[in-house]
Design a protein around this nucleic acid. Structure first.
Lengths: 339, 339
DNA sequence: CTGTTAGCGCCTTCAG
DNA sequence: CTGAAGGCGCTAACAG
C-alpha cells in the first residue's frame, strides 16, 4: 500500500510552495504555465491524489450532497435517484445515499449523520414530512429540498407532481370512457402529500361526474403488487362488481390485472385498469398499462438542480423557485376500454 | 442558519477541556460519569453536532465506503445496493454511491474520486474488470471488493455467483423437459465474467446432452426487455423454430414471452422460456417466469460484510475469504413445459 | 505569479 | 480521570 503523499511532498518535488501546488490542483489561473507543468509532473511522478477530507475541512465545502431515500430497490425511487445522480455529476457533486424505509426515526437519524458529514446540501424523499422533520431541517446550515414529496405548509423547497390532480386525471379517463362503477386501490391514507392526495383526486373526479362514492369500492393497499392482487380479489367478491379499477400506483395495478386474468376475466374488455406512476414495468405487461406518468427522473434532476442553485446562493431565499410542481401526463395504452 | 458550534465551545460551556469532550463524544470509558453528564448537557444546550470531516482528517477514518454501480435504476443493481446499504448501516458505515454506466473511463474516474474522498473501502460492481481497473485498485490504500462480478485472474476479492453454472442449470431444466431445440438470447459476449460465462453454460449444457450447437439459435441482446422482444421475433422467423428459449436475464425473457404471446403463441404450451436472475418482476408476469435465482441482496450484503472484515483487518490478506461464490437456485414457476 | 502563515475542527499521545 | 499541545492535509488571505 502506497504511503500517502501530500501536497507538501509535491511542493518539494516540484521545487515550489504548497500554495502553488494547491493553485494548480484547483485550477487557479494565477500560475505560470511552466510552473504548472512542473507541478503536474511532480504530481504524476509521486502519484499524488488530493485529500478531499482535508480540503473539505479547510474550504468548508465537501462537494457532496446527502440523499435520504425510502428504499433504493423500489423502482420509483431508484429512478428519481438516477435523475439526482446525473445532475449531481454534471455539477461535480457526489451523492451519499441513505435508505430510511419511511421510518420517521430513521429519517431523522440519517438527516443528522448526513449533516455531520458536512454535506453541502440535502435531498429528502421519504414518507410524511412532519414537524420534527422540519425542525431537523431548520438546524441545517445547508439547503434542503424535498423530492417527490412536500410538507403540508410548503415551507421547505420541494419538487413534486400534483398527486391530487394526477389521480383526478387518471380517474377521469375512466369516466370519459363511460365507467361509473370505479373502484380504487388506494395507498395509505396517512400520507397527506401522496396517498391521501391521490384518494382526494379520486373523490373529486367522481364528485364532479355526479357519481356517488361507494365505500365498498375503496380499499387500502400498501403499494405493492401483492396487495393489488388481494384487493382486487375483494372487488371481485362484491355483488355489484366495479367495471374499472383505479390503482394508486402501477405495481398494484399490475396486481389487479393479474388477479383479473387469473379469474378468467379479460382486461380491458371485462374490466379496465388504470393507475399512476408509469414505471418501466407498465409497458412490460399484457395488456400494457394505461397510466398517468409521473416524471420520476425529472423530479430527481430538477430537485438536484434546484439544490445546486440554493447551494450557490444563485437564488435569493429559495422562495421563488421553491415549490416546483412538475407536469404529469396520461399515457394511453391498452388497459382501459370504452364501456 | 445556526453558527457552527465546535468541540471547543462545548468544552467551555461544560467547563472541561476539549479532550474530555472528544472522549465523551467517542464513548471513551475513561470519563467520570459526572463529567460525562455535564458534557452531554452542554452538547444538548448548544446543539453541538460533531464535524465528521474534521474527525476524518484527524483520525484518518471516514466511516464511509464508496460504491461504484453501473446503474442504480436497474433492478438487479439496486437490489444489490440495498443489501450493501443494510449491512453498511449495521456496521455504521455510510455509502457514497456513484453510477458509472459500465463505461470503463467513467469507472476509473469515480474510483479515483472515491479514493480522494478517503473512503474506508470500495465496493465495485461494473462491467468488465480490466487490467486498468486492477491498476487503479492497486493504488488504493483501502480494501476493495468486487461485487456481482470478478476479475479473470481472481486477484481481487469478490462476491458473485457462478454464472456459467447458473446458465448451465437453467438450460438443463429445458433439456430435462425434453427440449432439444433451445435458442438463447445472450447478453454481450465481451464480458467474460457474466455475458460470456452464461453463453458458455448454455453451450456446455447442450454439449453434454449431445445436442449440436445451432448458430441460428444464438442471438445477442443487450439485457433489456426490448431486445428480448426483437430477438424472439427473429427466432419466430426461422424455418425450424426452437421449442424453448433460454434468456441470459429475466428482462429479455419477459420480452420473449410477450412477443410469443403477441404472435398468438401460448407460453409454455407452444414455447417454453427460462432465464436467470429472478428479479421481482419475474413473478409479476403471466405466466410467471421460471428462472434461476441470483441472490442479489445477499451478494451485496456478503460483499459489504467481507469489506468490513478487510477494513478492520480481521482477515489476514484477504486470501482466505476472498473469492466468495454464492449459490444459485432454480425457481420453478410456469414458463416451462414438458415436451 | 508565488511564498508565508494561519487556521479548519477534531483526535491522540503525553503528562499529570 | 483530565488537560495541553501537536498535528491531520489543505485552503485562503496577505504579502511580496
Amino acid at each position: 500500500m502506497a504511503v500517502t503523499v501530500t501536497i507538501y511532498d509535491v511542493a518539494r518535488e516540484a521545487g515550489v510552495s504548497m500554495a502553488t501546488v494547491s493553485r494548480v490542483v484547483n485550477n487557479n489561473p494565477n500560475v505560470k504555465p511552466q510552473t504548472r507543468k512542473k507541478v503536474f509532473e511532480a504530481i504524476e511522478r509521486l502519484g499524488y491524489r488530493p485529500n478531499a477530507v482535508a480540503r473539505g475541512l479547510a474550504s468548508k465545502k465537501t462537494t457532496t450532497v446527502g440523499v435520504v431515500i425510502p428504499d433504493i430497490s423500489n423502482p420509483i425511487f431508484s429512478e428519481v435517484a438516477r435523475g439526482i445522480e446525473d445532475i449531481a455529476n454534471m455539477y461535480h457533486y457526489n451523492i451519499i445515499l441513505c435508505n430510511a424505509d419511511k421510518k420517521k426515526e430513521k429519517e431523522i437519524r440519517v438527516i443528522n449523520t448526513l449533516l455531520e458529514k458536512q454535506v453541502d446540501g440535502l435531498l429528502f424523499m421519504g414518507g410524511v414530512v412532519t414537524e420534527d422533520h422540519i425542525q431537523a431541517f431548520k438546524t441545517s446550515s445547508v439547503p434542503v429540498v424535498l423530492c417527490a414529496t412536500a410538507d403540508e405548509k410548503h415551507i421547505i423547497p420541494s419538487v413534486d407532481i400534483d398527486h391530487e390532480k394526477a389521480a383526478y386525471d387518471s380517474v377521469n379517463v375512466l369516466i370519459q370512457n363511460g365507467h361509473r362503477n370505479i373502484a380504487m386501490i388506494s395507498g395509505t391514507l396517512q400520507d397527506p402529500a401522496n396517498g391521501f392526495a391521490r384518494y382526494q383526486g379520486y373523490r373529486r373526479a367522481l364528485e364532479e361526474a355526479g357519481i356517488p362514492l361507494n365505500e365498498d369500492y375503496v380499499r387500502v393497499g400498501n403499494y405493492r403488487y401483492e396487495s393489488g392482487l388481494e384487493v382486487t380479489k375483494y372487488f371481485l367478491s362484491l355483488d355489484e362488481r366495479p367495471t374499472a379499477i383505479f390503482a394508486a400506483n402501477d405495481e398494484m395495478a399490475i396486481g389487479a390485472i393479474h388477479t383479473l386474468q387469473d379469474s378468467g376475466l379479460k382486461v380491458p374488455d371485462d374490466m379496465s385498469v388504470i393507475s399512476v406512476d408509469n414505471i418501466r414495468m407498465a409497458s412490460m405487461v399484457r395488456p400494457e398499462l394505461t397510466t398517468v406518468a409521473q416524471p420520476m427522473y425529472d423530479i430527481g434532476a430538477v430537485a438536484m438542480r434546484l439544490l445546486t442553485k440554493l447551494m450557490n446562493k444563485e437564488t435569493k431565499d429559495a422562495s421563488e423557485l421553491s415549490q416546483v410542481v412538475l407536469p404529469h401526463e396520461v399515457i394511453h395504452r391498452n388497459s382501459v376500454a370504452q364501456r
